[in-house]
Design a protein around this nucleic acid. Structure first.
Length: 424
RNA sequence: AGAAAGGUGGCCGAGUGGUCGAAGGCGCACGCUUGGAAAGCGUGUAUACGGCAACGUAUCGAGGGUUCGAAUCCCUUCCUUUCUGCCA
């Protein structure tokens, strides 16, 4: 959530920034924000004055009662009852303005970083890095869903029977490979200084609002009506929310967390080749990294996260590229996002496997996550996160890119984790 | 799930209708003291919103109510602890 004060003082910056997202309603919402803010402040001033008067009279009444001047006290009582009515009306007004302002602010996405180009869709994303060699697989190369069937390591139909489409069952060496990837990713993250956490897989409404899933993505999360809890769409939600409401010390930075969780997404509206096999699932596994940073260091930290993810893909010897997302493709809450895409050779397309973002103060404002700065004042921290990494598409990439006549080779770094070097 | 007790500042903890944003202690910061340190002494030390400022307002888990006035009384709700029940 953007800060009202910032909008008030940097209206043009906000509008220019939002223009890069091709966000048509920006101007009208910003205008409404400014009006609501003006109304809110004006109402608060009158309400405060009314309450101040009322408090003053109450004190006088108290002392009149003590000194036995009951009549004088009763006269003042009359007055306070009027003030009370006024303040009731005013506080209702204040509430209305505050809520209206809040609702408007919830509609505004983050302002993109200066390096972000304007653009509407993924076609406008910039490729900024490319690494790894695309293997020459020959004529008989199979897409991962056929390999999964051939070697009996992932069973999509079985998952459909138990739950529904998009909930695969991993079997035998497939299951073992999943577990190997999770451990390998976690170990890499821990070695890079991230602290491991195991967090709840269901979160309350306050958490979903704080990281920005609500109200923007309502309907994309699975929800348990009985207890009003949401299944997490990413570990970002519970991990970042560990720090909700905190006032951290400047010396605590950088705060680096990692965690493995399954992720649940309803993916309403997805269809076609994009959902084939492991490409898009309702439940998938992901290892996430989250950082809480000093504002001055957050972009360094983002670069550090990108470098870290690169080392993992290098070790796995997978061909990948990095995109800087354009304004229109950058998520609602992010200021700058780098997407990692893995080349799926048998499908001849790029698959997103990681997304590393800096949210600046957008989440921190909702989280009320602050630190004490050098002047001793509290200031919002910056939050960042990235996948390191999402499992299914990495698995798809391994299956497809490492397929041979005799079976699927296991990337060298994973062999110690798997306990085998081939899936035959 | 049932019963009981309880939720107060960074932490501990007092406070049952006005003088309470809140005693006292710990912690922390600064100063004095000291050759230096510890101890001791003194001063300061919540957050948010509004205001150029003086300052005002709100906040004692959350929401509502009673009252001229609520940390304190009433209602609702959430959470914690203990006991009982159930269970991996």
């Amino acid at each position: 959530m953007l800060q009202v004060q910032f909008i008030r003082e940097h209206k043009e910056t906000v509008l220019n920034g939002l223009a890069k997202r091709n966000f048509a309603e920006a101007k009208s919402i910003v205008e409404q924000v400014l009006i609501a803010d003006e109304n809110r402040r004006a109402t608060q001033v009158t309400l405060d004055d009314t309450l101040a008067e009322s408090n003053k009279l109450s004190k006088e009444i108290g002392s009149f009662f003590k000194s036995g001047q009951v009549q004088k006290a009763n006269i003042l009582k009359e007055k306070t009852s009027q003030l009370k009515e006024q303040s009731k009306e005013l506080s209702e007004k204040l509430n209305a303005f505050t809520n209206a302002l809040q609702d408007l602010l919830y509609q505004l996405p983050n302002i993109p970083h200066t390096s972000v180009k304007a653009g509407n869709s993924e076609e406008d994303n910039e490729i900024i890095f490319n690494e790894g060699t695309i293997p020459n697989l020959g004529e008989n190369a199979l897409p991962h869903w056929e390999l999964a069937k051939k070697y009996d390591i992932i069973d999509f139909e079985l998952g459909t029977k138990i739950t529904g489409a998009g909930f695969p069952v991993y079997k035998g060496k497939g299951a073992r490979l999943q577990r190997a990837l999770i451990n390998y990713f976690l170990d890499k993250n821990i070695a890079a200084g991230y602290k491991e956490y195991q967090v709840p897989h269901l979160v309350n409404t306050a958490s979903a609002i704080a990281t920005g899933q609500l109200p923007d993505k309502d309907g994309q999360m699975y929800h348990s009506n009985e207890d009003d809890l949401y299944l997490i769409p990413t570990a970002e939600v519970p991990i970042t929310n560990m720090f909700r409401g905190n006032l951290v010390q400047e010396t605590d930075f950088p705060i680096c967390c990692t965690g493995y969780t399954p992720c649940f997404r309803r993916e309403a509206g997805s269809y076609g080749a994009h959902v084939r096999g492991l490409n898009r699932l309702h439940q998938f596994d992901k290892v996430e990294i989250v950082r809480i940073e000093h504002p001055e260091n957050s972009y360094n930290a983002l670069d550090g996260m990108v470098e870290h993810i690169k080392t993992i893909l290098r070790e796995l010897k997978l061909p990948y590229r990095i995109l800087r997302l354009c304004g229109g493709d950058t998520g609602f809450t992010a200021a700058l996002t780098f997407d990692f895409e893995l080349f799926s050779t048998a499908q001849d397309r790029w698959l997103e496997i990681s997304s590393a973002s800096n949210f600046e103060t957008f989440q921190a404002n909702r989280l009320k996550l602050r630190f004490k700065n050098k002047e001793g004042k509290s200031e919002f921290a910056h939050t960042l996160n990235g996948s390191s990494l999402a499992l299914p598409r990495v698995l798809a990439g391994i299956l497809e890119n490492y397929q041979t006549e005799n079976g699927i080779k296991i990337p060298e770094v994973l062999v110690p984790y798997c306990g085998f070097s081939m899936i035959e």
